[in-house]
């Protein structure tokens, strides 16, 4: 198993923590992992991204130019990374924020209204976990149990009372995939 993933969006959308949660979950399952953030001024409101690799084998380059999956949470990230998804790959996006998705025909493109759903659940900050839930339903690279285990490490202890709502958000993401009008066909 090798999953080469990029998560990209605005700083503050939970881009880095989504990748980090996946990386921790990979570690929980004894897999090889690498998490490479973009860092610097973009952390303060600009665009942020992180490359997360989960693999059964030792990971060579932590820096990649094309990806099995791109999760994009804003328009600039859609414009930048849609072309970098490998043919047959997955492009997952937040459909409330991104109005012009890619028109590529050789990849699966899936939009999820995660922001609106997060607001319904009265916590805008769990948007990233709704997306993560959707992603893991499409590509179960790690189990949901491992993600919950990982969240205990990613979230500081003082936020552990938020674990249940994060779990609900992950389930909501899965549910949103079920509710899609057209089923998602993934090649790889």
């Amino acid at each position: 198993m090798l999953e080469e993933l990029i998560v990209a969006g605005f700083g503050g959308q939970g881009v880095l923590s989504m990748g980090m949660t996946l990386a921790y979950a990979g570690m929980v399952e004894g897999k090889e992992i690498s998490w490479m953030p973009s860092y610097g001024p973009e952390m303060r409101g600009g665009t942020a991204n992180c490359i997360t690799i989960i693999s059964d084998n030792k990971i060579s380059s932590p820096i990649l130019s094309c990806f099995d999956t791109a999760i994009v949470l804003n328009q600039p990230s859609m414009d930048k990374f849609a072309t970098r998804v490998k043919p047959g790959g997955l492009l997952l996006y937040e459909s409330g924020t991104i109005l012009r998705p890619s028109d590529r025909k050789d990849i699966a493109i899936v939009g999820i209204p995660a922001t609106a759903e997060a607001l319904k659940m009265k916590n805008a900050r769990i948007m990233n976990m709704i997306i993560l839930g959707a992603y893991l339903h499409l590509k179960p690279v790690v189990s949901l149990d491992s993600i919950l285990e990982a969240l205990k490490k990613v979230l500081p202890e003082k936020y552990h009372h938020l674990l249940p709502i994060n779990e609900m958000a992950l389930e909501k993401g899965e549910q949103l995939i079920h509710e899609l009008e057209e089923p998602v066909m993934l090649v790889c």
Binding site: E32, I33, S34, P37, I63
Partner: peptide, 10 residues
């Protein structure tokens, strides 16, 4: 370098 310093691994 900045990348090895900032990246997370096991």
């Amino acid at each position: 370098d900045g990348a090895i310093g900032q990246m997370m691994e096991k």
